[in-house]
């Protein structure tokens, strides 16, 4: 299925319109307008400081935008706390630093939020957690502590932890940047499976291989603006904008 069809045939999960965001005098986002359709995988590329992370952090309100609208699954993000909670329970997020709870087992890390936030019975939460650990390929690590795991395994636990809340959208903020190169692939493979399973995903990354292979569309940002949007094929072989060409020449 090509990206155009997904974008044309499926409803929007995320719709941003003219989003502006300042940190003091510094404008981090300048009129960002984009939509992401249900089951679509969008990779956001761009140099450091281009606003990629700020943008996806705005989507589950870890940062508040100041102008424009962000609508996630039909709910607009405003200061209304109820809306923010509803969105956060539907949007899973994986960070660069996976920050697992060091004193809880892998299984407890994954079941903690469902038990606490969703009031899920312990037995159900554990069945679900074991399924997820199976999915991310580390079922045998359930009773270990995070410190006994490699970085790649820890990040896969973090993905399972986010999935345990049954999100409709998954946001990834440079999920492999803190990893040893040897462990990047195992994390990207899990993300690829997730994409194939139909999860709506927005991924900030520097992994060009992943972008080329998995993304439905690529959004290229620079200096807080969206410079170019297109399919991986278009983006890597025939980019329109000079700034995109410059970025690719530096990175590839």
């Amino acid at each position: 299925m090509s990206s155009e069809t997904k974008q044309q045939t499926r409803p929007d999960m995320i719709a941003c319109e003219n989003v502006d965001k300042w940190f003091g005098d510094f404008q981090a986002l300048k009129g960002v307008t984009a939509t992401i359709a249900e089951q679509e995988v969008v990779v956001v590329l761009g140099p450091s400081g281009s606003g990629k992370s700020t943008w996806i952090r705005c989507i589950n309100r870890l940062e508040a935008h100041q102008r424009g609208t962000i609508v996630v699954d039909g709910v607009e993000l405003t200061n209304d706390v109820r809306n923010i909670e509803k969105i956060r329970s539907e949007v899973g997020m994986v960070f660069q630093q996976f920050n697992l709870f060091p004193h809880l087992t892998v299984l407890d890390n994954v079941t903690l939020a469902p038990k606490w936030v969703r009031k899920m019975p312990k037995a159900d939460a554990e069945i679900k957690a074991k399924e997820l650990l199976n999915m991310v390929g580390i079922p045998e690590q359930a009773s270990k502590l995070p410190s006994q795991l490699s970085g790649g395994q820890q990040q896969r636990v973090a993905i399972a932890r986010a999935l345990a809340m049954e999100p409709k959208i998954m946001l990834f903020d440079e999920p492999t940047s803190a990893l040893d190169p040897e462990m990047i692939k195992e994390v990207l493979d899990v993300m690829k499976d997730l994409a194939l399973g139909g999860m709506t995903m927005m991924v900030v990354t520097h992994e060009m291989g992943f972008a080329r292979e998995v993304a439905d569309r690529i959004i290229f940002m620079e200096s807080g603006e969206i410079v170019e949007v297109g399919t991986p094929e278009h983006f890597f072989t025939d980019p329109t904008e000079d700034r995109t060409k410059l970025f690719l020449s530096q990175i590839l």
Partner: peptide, 12 residues
Amino acid sequence: AVGEEEALSLGI
């Protein structure tokens, strides 16, 4: 204890 942002992103 997991972290402020992780807690927020998990709905807490």
